[in-house]
Design a protein around this nucleic acid. Structure first.
Lengths: 216, 216, 216, 216
DNA sequence: TATGAATGAGATTTCATTCAT
DNA sequence: TATGAATGAAATCTCATTCAT
């Protein structure tokens, strides 16, 4: 059967998306022509349109991939036994991410999606999944509050926004200044957050500990 | 020579920039055609090209205006006598800003400039002025550190980044969710920052107070 | 006012439609590219899109013009005092039409619209107006039948179809063989039709004569 | 060599042509893509190109088939012993044809060939065979004239054109209005033609009868 | 022969910009 | 200065055709 295997098909799709992502990171997707994607991917216009019905659809696919990565970053931390530990894992993951030069480039594409989501309904829909994800974080913070790890007076809704902001602002600044000291940033941000955690961490009783699981 | 007065010239320019900003906030500037700006401004294509040599130049002019506003927001706080007081003023100014629906719309344009600055050299140049501005904030924090208001262990460079991030992330989240509780966000963010200020604020000697001036 | 006058606007539109019609007659509209229309019209692509939103819209405009001419041809005969006289006028008009070489070319475009109307809803709609026009012819024949000019046994619905067919078939054959003897064709066709008219034309009483007015 | 039998080859070819004809009747051949023909035929692009070197060649093949059918329609009547009888057989054959819904669809394709023949040299060539066929009809009419069945004053060249026109116009009208009363049309058309036949049919002598053979 | 992914020339359309008025 | 019709380079996308398998 000369029909391409599902595996090959995925590989081609990835080839296109990666080429396009490189172009987008370099020039922005409004300045990237299909011809450039064609050149960068080493394929032909027709081939690309075998996999994506339009440039727009390709952009959306990349948007979805980008958001999935952001989500993975936070999800990876969900298994922490406590807020404190979760934060430590988040810090570690962030720093690790920054070591990947490719990923650094891709972050630029994420920022373009922020802008695009403000007027493109389809991109917005993808972005909104990320917003819902913050709901999960808020819930986790609430649990931490019940377990005593977080003082009762803290507004968990706002705190989750603050945590997101620290992440988003960092992405942005790093795109502008690739050489920034990310370790220092993460440490300082962590210090800030830990500053409002309850001074004496509660004796993490089994139950409480469990509740916090899947937290941040 | 039918040269119009300088005053009229400025008025026309403002008329164009405001129309363009409305279009850009609504549709993004890559989806905004000159024809739309023409329609929104009530002028003619030729007239617009009397005031701006290209769409790009118009975009740059708006970019400059946007960044000037951001700067003003921070500059307004520069006259505080201490970090603590500066933060309070910043908080106040932020909340005030959010009450202006028009300004809310314009924020969307700022986000587009973030994206655009990643590959457009001219826009980037404007954005970089904003980055340099952070240098001022860092210096101010350093002064606060010397005065004892900020513990010696804090990395002021990172802290200024964190403060910027809190601002940027907020802008972004507010663009996505216009109804978010900005008061709560600002309070929580402030609580975080104040959490790392020295427990006992130093007697703000005149000299120290002065140093903090022009701070945040 | 540099705004173009309505007159000039119409002239430009005509310029485009005529250029396009020449192309269509020569190459068929599926083989005619916009670039060719551009060349033939002496304008630029953009100029054409100032007057027509798409190639399709341009085709429709021409279709409407074509059908209007066909209609005019029949309408011109509507003022005859009797069926017999109406037929004579039709014959004359047909022959006259065939002397115009340009019109001869345009007939080719009409035939293309016949084909196109079979699957293009918009073109079909225009063609259907032509069909409705046959209704008028049928009514006129019925009047002639009442007045005794046409024998009672004749099915007027079918007869109007036959008259249309004689017209359509002629258009087609003339497109294939531009040199055909149109006078002879018309004479023969007329002889056929007159062959079924009542042998003794009824005394055309005023009333009857009037009724026939607006006939064929 | 994996050469398939001639029989299979023909079957495949027919399969393709039938699928293509369905597509062409439905959408017109300019709007029909090879992909659609592929889908409709159940084959693959490559397979189709085994049997036809190009879309054009496929179109030509269908054109030839269409014209052969038209010819057959007239040829079938060629064995009549007199013009009058021949016309009766033609009438019968026409009505019979109209009962076949498939054939009705295919007529639409014929109309497209009329249009296409106006600028496509290859299609034109096929159409011209149809024109030559009219020559045969003219000759037959001339024979009928000699035999006295047709009055001497009739221009046989024109009459054959008229007969063709009645056929062509009917095809066209039926494509537009599939529900038209074809029986009535045929009866009326026949009445018209018979109206100019010699009142008293000549004693059809053997010779004359033979001459008329192959007539209409 | 048959497959179908891939090709790439070429079509339509857009839109920032110009220039005669 | 101001107008707006016109320009034309360039972008997206299509689809008849090919060719490695």
């Amino acid at each position: 059967m000369p029909k391409i295997s599902e595996e090959k098909r995925r590989a081609r799709q990835a080839q296109i998306l990666e080429a396009a992502t490189r172009c987008f990171a370099r020039d922005g997707f409004h300045h990237t022509t299909m011809e450039e994607v064609v050149r960068e991917s080493g394929l032909s216009p027709g081939a690309i349109y075998c996999y994506f019905r339009s440039k727009q659809e390709m952009v959306e696919a990349i948007s979805a991939v980008r958001h999935a990565r952001d989500q993975a970053l936070l999800d990876e931390l969900a298994s922490a036994a406590s807020l404190r530990k979760g934060l430590d894992r988040l810090a570690l993951a962030l720093v690790r991410m920054l070591e990947d030069a490719k990923e650094k480039q891709r972050r630029k594409v994420s920022i373009q999606f922020w802008a695009e989501s403000l007027h493109d309904a389809r991109i917005r829909k993808v972005a909104e999944r990320g917003l819902r994800q913050r709901g999960g974080l808020t819930a986790a913070l609430r649990t931490a509050q019940r377990s005593g790890e977080l003082p009762a007076g803290v507004d968990v809704e706002s705190l989750s926004r603050v945590l997101f902001a620290l992440f988003q602002g960092f992405i942005l600044q790093q795109a502008w200044e690739p050489g920034l000291d990310s370790g220092a940033y993460v440490r300082t941000a962590m210090a800030l957050i830990k500053g409002i955690l309850s001074k004496a961490a509660p004796a993490p009783r089994r139950k409480a500990a469990k509740a916090v699981t899947g937290l941040l």
